[in-house]
């Protein structure tokens, strides 16, 4: 029990170090988890290098997209006030991939437009509600330089780049360097060090294999 509290404290500390969490949120396990995940999303911005063309216009905001049923609620809102390298952060929410496609059926151009909007995001968090559409979503933004972040098992296998995992009630993440490379993203080693699991360059070939960090 003592250890738990300790870890919680550390987590809280780590989170608060990067992102001030409003006190108004209900202090539930779920909301705490998403607080941390929100902070992680923000921190990823600092250890990932986007292709130049993606960040060419310094005046344009950095877009964090959230697709599916938003689990963050208000927790994510403070990110908007914390610019990264002078660039504002915009949270863009998408209802679901289905609805995007539907909109496209009605109007092909519109759908295309909507799906294209996904590709304009810098970070795209795919909520658990979209687990069935993971492959499609990942495919749709594959070459758009979008850091896809999911929280589903096997996310990396379908081409996702970062996947949140829970270990010992602690939020961790996995990274697929191969997917990142495909997306034209560069992930810093510092971030890689922290990843619970890193899928190297060619996951399919398996030559390099996957590196798995042992967790204490």
């Amino acid at each position: 029990m003592r250890i738990k509290i300790h870890i919680l404290m550390v987590l809280t500390a780590a989170f608060s170090a990067t992102l001030a969490v409003p006190e108004v949120y209900a202090d539930t396990a779920s909301s705490r988890e998403y607080q941390i995940k929100a902070a992680f999303l923000y921190n990823f911005l600092q250890f990932v290098d986007w292709p130049k063309e993606k960040i060419a216009d310094a005046n344009k905001p950095i877009i964090i997209g959230i697709i599916g049923d938003d689990p963050f609620g208000n927790v994510i809102e403070p990110l908007k006030d914390k610019p990264v390298e002078g660039r504002k952060i915009v949270i863009q929410r998408f209802k679901s991939f289905e609805s995007l496609k539907k909109a496209g059926e009605n109007d092909a151009a519109g759908a295309k437009q909507n799906i294209k909007a996904l590709g304009e995001c810098h970070v795209l968090f795919i909520c658990a509600s979209e687990n069935k559409n993971l492959r499609e979503i990942v495919e749709s933004v594959k070459n758009s330089g979008v850091l896809t972040v999911g929280e589903a098992e096997g996310f990396l296998d379908v081409g996702g780049i970062v996947n949140f995992v829970m270990a010992d009630e602690k939020v961790g993440f996995e990274i697929s360097i191969a997917s990142a490379k495909h997306a034209g993203l560069e992930i810093r080693s510092k971030l890689l060090r922290l990843a619970k699991k890193v899928i190297q360059e060619d996951a399919a070939s398996g030559i390099l294999g996957e590196e798995k960090r042992d967790s204490a």
């Binding site: 550390v10 170090a17 990067t18 921190n43 600092q46 250890f47 510092k190 060090r193 922290l194 204490a216």
Partner: peptide, 14 residues
């Protein structure tokens, strides 16, 4: 420099 990420992600071990 090295521990930036560790702190950012609260990774004491690292």
């Amino acid at each position: 420099d090295n521990c930036k990420a560790a702190i950012a992600f609260g990774d004491v071990k690292d």
